[in-house]
Design a protein around this nucleic acid. Structure first.
Length: 881
RNA sequence: GGGCGCAUAGCUCAGUUGGCUAGAGCACCUGCCUUACAAGCAGGGGGUCCCUGGUUCGAGUCCAGGUGCGCCCACCA
């Protein structure tokens, strides 16, 4: 480089300020055109860095959280890219599933009715206020799916624009939708593989059921809410004997479903009852009284009725005690028609029981409860006809009840036929996989471990919904038209993806659909997690392209939110184990939450969402990214707009510093001055520390270090110290210019992952040509090579001494209330003897920066090492303007 | 009830294996248009590091107990 001219910029030719909005558009286009972020499938696995990007749920509304966590991943990715890695960074859209169905129902004001025929070319359009007052329009399943596709395509556009602008360096050629053909094939392939390996099974069993969405719900999708309820005390009698006892229940409407009575075996009060039969009020059902350790003598009255089904414990008791099934609540939440008597529900007084039940049939759960309580209040409602069955008034309580996480009514437990994946017998393996993955931050591992250890249900895979991936199964129908669920018909892998409601199994034709001796298609779809748990394999094209799969699986990192460890992380780990016997990725990065200023989680439903577009306009994308990258992994952060402001300030400062440094035309000369070498040494230490932190995914501290160095060491100190010398047309001036450029060059690269726009802009002025690296984002990460030509300083502390000396003179100027640019006519600077000796090699730079022509030095032994004091100073008068 | 996390300046946050007088930015106060930058610079005030006890020459940091907040899970008669 010595002797050649360097490329410089003319500051006058540059805009006064960085035009961020224009630059964001321009660079985005340029990066797309040049394929800056493209994955190269020809490079080997060891040179590749694979990201298992979360496919966001496309809900239609954007908030700052969407920028937050995705930017954190992008910073990690951009660092890896600058290390020379071949980056596989796809982005998919999780568009199937209930959130989309809900949004479509609201947006168009429609409901899916699978009985309706398909209407070709149906145009519905967004619902207006008038239409919303009417009943939702019923449309066919296929029409409904088309609307889902239409709306998600629209929503995806908004998300794509937001993230393009935020500068996510994804390879947009790898885009996918979890409902697209490739994902459906991957999910169905997963099912066939699990079936072949014996991990999935079909079972008719009581399972959590959401009445509003009319679908089964997995353990992971349920949550508890504390709601008001009431203990109702009901008097039961014995079938043989005069004794009676009182149970307490919060669900009196399930009295008709009572199948047993339980109390603690040690409970003296009820010891004599075990093995005998009780008689229920109203329905006069004879039920077994049995002991169980799980009955709590302290709770309620200590004795309880077991129903089919009030809760999961009822299910367990029903199984253990082999109790009769008395299902009264239907899939729509209404009481189903049933009869008591011979060949039906057992009753000692069928006529009375049927009379009572007639008043409940067809009622919704809460109405039935009211009605039952009225009946129980009536005199003579007790099983022995002596008074009312309801003892005392109901006692109001608050109690926890399970809900579907998106549901409005409590979950019911109903026996339904569902597909399950066996997981309970694989806990040990899944826990071992969890150990083999590096969790960032590490304490998040505990959440996975706790969840896995405490899992108590197998994974229910099927959902009775519409917009999702079909379960690829048909069932043969016998001569009476009944399906044989024990002999499911599966498609060949080559046929995937299929929709069993449309496609026909091998050996049948369409005319045999739903006909005796023919076949019927499985109407259910998969739980959305069944597909999203395959994101690593979706990216790797598992099954379709073995060579690609080898290069992309397992992935390097999985970034995700911590509240879905039990779902997305867990199921992905489970699938990778079941299919491949490995981990799905080597590292998992858990992002924190954005909280509103009251420290509540920001979410659409709470209405406390900050929309990102205005903020992007106000502060720029680099500032947004600065904000996101300032938060550490796993740490919830209160939203604070002032951090965006700091990001923008940093961007502006970079613009100005870049303009200054690259406009210096000093001669090309190696770095030789002590101060310059001392600066380079500090810069080198920064690079090493920053690299170490980024290797551990600690982008936040790497940024804090770099920002602080840039601001205080580079611009405030070093740049001020050498700006005068840099203008000199000699070897010392060349040394200053060279190291200033080195400082800018290295700092730009350190900041490029966080602030891709401003760094690319400044890079393009000179360094792109100088390093033959058209984009800073493909430039090598700074390292030893950048410092190879620079000798270490004679005194590593000389830079700090110079900065401290200058600061002491600045303080004198501030105390005298004169500007920093004021010339110093006389100066007496004091320090201890050793400090004066050490500062001597760099004192010239200090005095130049302070605009000081003549000076005296004084020895003050009392000053600490490295401390300076201005004993006296006279400043030139303010020049006339 | 079990597990995890957090508590540091008015606000948002750093603080590494225990080590000088506990830091940054924002906000606030004072001064300064200085040849990159007033979208800036220089300087300044501001702290019971949640509480109690312990270990230690030394504790914001380690240990025990407690308080408050948040999250995850379990309990659901």
């Amino acid at each position: 480089m010595n002797g050649t001219r360097r490329k410089t910029v003319d500051p006058a030719a540059l805009p006064r300020h960085f035009e961020a909005a224009e630059a964001e558009r321009r660079w985005h286009e340029r990066w797309q055109r040049d394929g800056t972020y493209h994955y190269d499938p020809s490079r080997p696995r060891e040179e590749t860095f694979v990201v298992d990007t979360p496919p966001p749920t496309v809900s239609g509304s954007l908030h700052v959280g969407h920028i937050f966590s995705y930017t954190q991943t992008d910073v990690v990715v951009r660092y890896q890219r600058m290390l020379g890695k071949n980056i596989f960074y796809p982005l998919g859209w999780d568009d199937n599933g209930l959130p989309t169905e809900r949004r479509v129902e609201n947006y168009y004001h429609v409901r899916c009715d699978p009985r309706l025929p398909y209407e070709a070319g149906l145009e519905v359009g967004e619902a207006n206020a008038k239409r919303r007052k009417e009943r939702p329009r019923g449309i066919s399943r296929q029409n409904f799916i088309e609307l889902c596709e239409e709306l998600t395509a629209k929503d995806e556009t908004a998300f794509r624009e937001l993230w393009s602008r935020a500068g996510l360096s994804v390879d947009w050629r790898q885009e996918y939708q979890t409902i697209d053909e490739h994902c459906r094939r991957t999910a169905q392939r997963s099912f066939l593989d699990l079936h072949a390996k014996g991990h999935v099974f079909l079972a008719e069993a009581p399972f959590m059921w959401d009445l509003d969405d009319q679908t089964a719900v997995a353990q992971a999708e349920s949550e508890e809410r504390t709601i008001p309820g009431a203990y109702h005390h009901l008097r039961f009698t014995l079938v043989d004997g005069d004794e009676s006892f009182t149970i307490a229940t919060t669900r009196p409407e399930l009295l008709a479903a009572c199948a047993g009575v339980a109390a603690h075996p040690e409970d003296e009060r009820f010891r004599g009852l075990f093995g005998r039969r009780a008689r229920t009020p109203l329905f006069h059902a004879p039920v077994e009284i049995f002991p169980s350790e799980r009955a709590d003598p302290e709770k309620g009255t200590g004795i309880l009725m077991v129903c089919t089904f009030g809760d999961q414990t009822d299910v367990d008791w029903w199984r253990e005690q082999d109790l009769p099934l008395r299902q009264v609540v239907g899939r729509d939440g209404r009481f189903v028609p049933i009869r008591f008597g011979e060949g039906a529900f057992e009753s000692l007084a069928p006529e009375a029981a049927n009379q009572a039940y007639d008043q409940l049939e067809g009622l919704a759960v809460h109405k039935a409860r009211e009605r039952v309580v009225e009946m129980l209040r009536e005199p003579g409602s007790a099983p022995d006809g002596q008074g009312a069955a309801l003892v005392d008034e109901p006692e109001a309580i608050e109690h926890p009840v399970k809900f579907y996480e998106r549901g409005r009514r409590p979950l019911e437990i109903l026996p339904t036929r569902q597909w399950f994946c066996r997981l309970l017998d694989k806990k040990a393996d899944l826990l071992a996989m969890g150990e083999a993955i590096a969790w960032h931050p590490p304490f998040m591992h505990a959440r996975f471990r706790d969840w896995t250890e405490n899992l108590n249900l197998d994974w229910c895979l099927s959902r009775q919904r519409f917009f999702g991936v079909s379960i690829p199964v048909w069932y043969p129908l016998d001569e009476s038209g009944e399906p044989d669920h024990g002999q499911p018909i599966l498609p060949a892998v080559e046929q995937l993806p299929i929709d069993p409601m449309i496609h026909v199994p091998e050996g049948y034709d369409e005319s045999q659909r739903d006909k005796p001796g023919g076949f019927t298609g499985e109407a259910d779809i998969f739980d959305t997690w069944f597909t999203s748990s395959m994101t690593p394999q979706i990216g790797s094209h598992w099954g379709d392209d073995p060579e690609r799969h080898e290069r992309l699986f397992p992935a390097d990192i999985r970034p995700q939110a911590h509240e879905i460890i039990r779902t997305w992380a867990f199921y992905t780990i489970a699938k990778a184990w079941l299919h491949h016997g490995t981990v799905p990725w080597h590292h998992i990065l858990l992002s924190g939450w954005i909280l509103d200023p009251d420290r509540k989680k920001m979410s659409k439903s709470k209405g406390n969402v900050v929309t990102p577009l205005e903020l992007l306009d106000k502060y720029t994308a680099d500032a947004a990214r600065y904000w996101a990258a300032s938060a550490r992994l796993g740490v919830d952060t209160a939203f604070d707009e002032s951090v965006w402001k700091i990001g923008k300030r940093l961007q502006t400062k970079l613009w100005n510093a870049g303009k200054f440094v690259l406009s210096q035309e000093g001669p090309v000369h190696p770095v030789h001055c002590e101060l310059d070498r001392a600066f380079a040494a500090k810069l080198r230490a920064l690079v090493e520390a920053s690299t170490r932190k980024l290797d551990g995914f600690d982008y936040a501290h790497a940024l804090a270090d770099t920002e602080s160095f840039f601001w205080s060491q580079f611009t405030d100190s070093y740049l001020e110290l050498v700006k005068v010398r840099a203008r000199r047309d000699d070897a010392d001036g060349g040394s200053a210019t060279t190291s200033l450029r080195l400082g800018l060059d290295v700092l730009l690269r350190l900041l490029a992952p966080v602030m891709p726009y401003i760094t690319e802009e400044i890079w393009s002025w000179a360094f792109a040509d100088e390093h033959d690296a058209p984009s800073i984002h493909r430039a090598p990460w700074p390292g030893h090579a950048d410092f190879a030509d620079i000798a270490p300083p004679d005194d590593p502390g000389s830079f700090d001494l110079a900065a401290a000396a200058l600061a002491s003179i600045n303080k004198a100027k501030a105390d005298a209330e004169v500007g920093m640019g004021r010339e110093v006519e006389t100066l007496t600077l004091a320090a201890n003897e050793a400090t004066l000796a050490r500062v001597a090699p760099v004192l010239g730079d200090v005095l130049e920066a302070a605009r000081c022509e003549t000076h005296d030095l004084a020895t003050e032994a009392s000053l600490e090492d490295g401390a300076f004091r201005v004993v006296s100073a006279q400043f030139a008068p303010k020049p006339a303007r």
